[in-house]
Design a protein around this nucleic acid. Structure first.
Lengths: 361, 361
DNA sequence: ATGAAAGCGCTAACAT
DNA sequence: ATGTTAGCGCTTTCAT
């Protein structure tokens, strides 16, 4: 019932305690753990047994102080509440754990300053950093990279090794899919201008458009959130094409909601494609067709690259490691209808005015 | 273009470097930062300026080695991909950052062993631990708590301080809501038997049932996942009441899916209530009515309690800190219909057989 | 108000 | 194969 309030009972045994108990020098104990080959097998065994009995665990801080090997890495995230991050974190954490590394999480709470502060504090402690999504400028990133081994995720920064998603191929697949469904015009709902991934997605999309002979339109930028998507629905409304590709799933989800409120049917009136395949995309009705980024694999790959970098590898700083995507087709995309058959069933907004610019045909 | 491959440019300046540059002893530099009052104001200013210029940052590892103050805490999560965790992590991280602490993330990947290993490794490094969701046994937890200051989240472990959600009040509200809609029988879809929150939710539900004069049924246990919910739909099918409360939102979401596949309409045929209010609950159709846990606040409170514990506070180990819930009413709950008017529109499964035990009336 | 010195727990040299 | 020693960067006595 009562119980101690927690906290250290007694001081943890040090390597000296173990050494004394085993009747050997501290260095021998150290070796018994780190380089068993250089210790008499029998002695090593005895030491380990005694250490085990005493509940000895080597103090990582002391080790780190000596040889800079803290066995910790940091993962920086600009906004941990974004579902996009979850799988990345999981992948990263798993990869770290596999090799005995501990992962520090630095959530920037969407603030450049907070993010830098956190990283700044952590930088000394960790052996390397993965920037999974960051608000920091290229310059800041390069400075950070000078301080510590660093890998950027889904962003290309000259001079810094990175792991990115292969949107070029993915967008081609998405456009091919829409083309196959008879769509000839696609609207892209842009994300934040500062986002590297927005630029690359739009560029990849344009190239794919040329390849398949589709016309592309661009709306935005919108905040990369559901609210952003709702706002986009409002704009899209006036200038609609039969197909939309959104910067990310959150925007697509918001768009779905906004469209539905406006009485526009998906996929009958408009086909919608998202990006990332986050949790929730198969929860909505209709399920969201999306360009799935292998999020968990991305996190894992980034950490593995970082560990390689730490052990002295020289990854290319100019060509990022590129991870392929996969188009997940759900119900939000369908064949283009020749023309809208009837006004929306429940026109919450005024019925569709004839689009000034882009005819839906 | 070329650029260094990352990694440390040159050794970071130590306190001795600063001391030399400022022409004072190292201890004075240390004091200038930690106890400015005990240093000549002018000297202190000069030191700080020089340190700033040199880009000096105190090495947390060295500090920690000396006085056990690493300014780090660990947050243990059994499964980081569970949306339930996100907001908790965010709240915890924010609270830690506010006071200059760094947060380590220990994801157990749903494995008791992995979780213990990770924590074991991290324990020496951190000043304290928050167990946000854990697969560990009470015994393991108590052992851990002896080693380090520790707070458990949403679980009561005798002898260990904890922060929990006030399900008693919440469940009463949920039952009142269903009662007000005319429901007289409620089925509870149980979660893992090992989960403390399952026990407490069921108990709170039973008490509320007595209070409002409703009959309660219990089905399960089911895995706390969407798949678990789909499986539950299968069982519930045969023994349905007009209202269901699921162990958590994931199960409720799965149930919604399973029910829909079976042609059972929500909320017309069945009202569904979830727990937690995770991301996605307002994405589904119908939106899920759910007992919202203040996830972010929970994480924040846990960390704050931990920090208090670390600074020597003696929180009660027997009565957990209790955080109130809020019932979020969406479209998945509605008035009970006297009887089903017609067989399901699209009976994927055989039409509803007369329930043997519990009549839907 | 400041300096000198010891030592946190560990490991890498060097010596045996 | 093992022991001895020095020192990582910091803070905390104790002395000045």
């Amino acid at each position: 019932m009562a119980g101690s309030t927690g906290g250290d009972g007694q001081a943890a045994p040090t390597i000296y305690d173990v050494a004394r108990a085993a009747g050997v020098a501290a260095s021998t104990v150290s070796r018994a753990f780190a380089r068993p080959a250089r210790v008499n097998a029998e002695t090593a065994g005895r030491i380990r047994r005694i250490a085990e009995e005493m509940g000895y665990r080597t103090n990582p801080l002391a080790r780190a102080l000596l040889n800079e090997r803290s066995s910790m890495i940091a993962l920086a995230i600009s906004d941990i509440t974004n579902p996009y991050c979850f799988e990345i974190i999981r992948g990263a954490q798993a990869a770290a754990m596999e090799v005995g590394y501990t992962m520090l999480l630095a959530d920037g709470q969407e603030s450049d300053r907070l993010e830098r502060e956190t990283l700044d504090r952590a930088a000394r402690t960790v052996e390397g950093i993965v920037l999974a999504s960051t608000r920091m400028s290229d310059t800041s990133i390069r400075m950070m990279a000078k301080l510590r081994p660093l890998i950027v995720l889904n962003r290309a920064v000259a001079g810094v090794p990175s792991v990115v998603t292969d949107y070029r191929h993915g967008m081609r697949e998405a456009v091919e899919h829409l083309h196959g469904l008879g769509h000839s015009h696609i609207t892209y709902l842009a994300g934040p201008e500062a986002a590297w991934s927005d630029g690359i997605r739009w560029q990849a999309l344009r190239e794919a458009g040329v390849e398949w002979g589709l016309r592309l339109h661009r709306l935005g930028p919108y905040p990369p959130t559901m609210l952003g998507g709702v706002a986009a629905a409002d704009d899209f409304w006036r200038r609609s094409t039969s197909a939309v590709i959104a910067y990310n799933d959150l925007v697509a989800l918001g768009l779905l909601r906004g469209l539905s409120a406006a009485g526009v049917r998906v996929p009958q009136d408009v086909s919608v494609v998202g990006c990332d395949n986050i949790f929730g995309t198969d929860l909505v009705t209709p399920g969201l067709t999306t360009l799935a980024a292998p999020l968990r694999f991305l996190g894992r790959t980034a950490v593995q690259s970082l560990l390689a970098l730490i052990s002295g590898a020289q990854p290319p700083v100019d060509k990022p490691v590129s991870i392929p995507t996969r188009l997940v087709v759900r119900a939000s995309t369908d064949e283009r209808r020749p023309a809208r058959l009837a006004p929306p069933a429940i026109p919450v907004r005024p019925p569709i005015s004839t689009p000034a610019g882009t005819p839906a045909t």
